[in-house]
Simulated scan of single mutants.
Amino acid sequence: MVQAPIQVLVVDDSAFMRRVITDFINEEPDMRVVDVARNAAQALEKIKRRQPDVVTLDVELPDMNGLEVLRRVMAEHPVPVIMLSGLTRKGTQAAIEAMSLGAVDFVTKPSGTISLDLYKVKEELKAKIRAAHRVSVRMPALDGLHPVPWTPSEDAALAGVHRKKIVCIGTSTGGPRSLQAVVPRLPKALSAPVLIVQHMPPVFTASLAERLNQLSEVTVREAVNGEVLRDGTVYIAPGGRHMRVRKVGRALALEISDGPPIRGLKPCFDLLLESLAEIGEQDIVATVMTGMGNDGAEGLSAIKRTCRVHAIAESEETSVIFGMPRAAIETGLVDEVLPLEKIAPAIVKQICS
Rank of each mutant, 00 (worst) to 15 (best):
L300P: 11
G299D: 03
Q198T: 07
E97I: 03
P80A: 11
T108N: 05
S257P: 07
V197S: 06
N294F: 04
R305Y: 01
V79F: 13
K46L: 13
I329A: 01
T113C: 01
V228Y: 05
I343Y: 03
P261Y: 03
M99R: 00
P201W: 09
A181M: 05
A4Q: 15
L145P: 09
E341K: 13
Q42H: 05
R263W: 06
D143R: 08
P238N: 09
M31S: 14
N225C: 03
T205Q: 02
T88S: 15
V182I: 15
V167H: 08
A131E: 10
M74Y: 05
V285E: 09
G296P: 07
A157S: 10
E314T: 01
V182P: 00
R138C: 02
P78K: 09
R32Y: 01
P176S: 07
V20T: 15
F322E: 06
S275L: 09
P184W: 12
P29C: 13
L190G: 07
C307W: 01
C168P: 02
N213Y: 04
D143H: 02
E341G: 07
A346L: 12
L84M: 09
M200G: 00
A223P: 04
T56Y: 09
T88I: 11
K122I: 06
E317I: 12
P187W: 13
E124Q: 14
L118Y: 03
T92L: 04
P325D: 09
T88K: 10
L158G: 00
A103G: 10
E97H: 04
Q180K: 14
A311Q: 12
A223N: 11
T306C: 05
H162I: 10
I82D: 00
E298H: 08
A103E: 09
T287M: 02
R241N: 15
A251N: 15
L254N: 12
S315R: 13
V121C: 14
V135R: 14
I6N: 05
Q198G: 01
V183T: 11
A127F: 02
A131Y: 03
G299T: 01
G239A: 01
R38A: 14
S301L: 09
A141N: 15
C168S: 11
P201E: 06
S100P: 02
L61D: 12
K266L: 04
A43G: 06
V33A: 12
L158S: 07
P267Q: 03
G232Q: 09
Y235W: 05
V148T: 15
V334Q: 10
V137G: 07
V135C: 04
D105S: 08
G249Y: 03
V34R: 06
N26A: 13
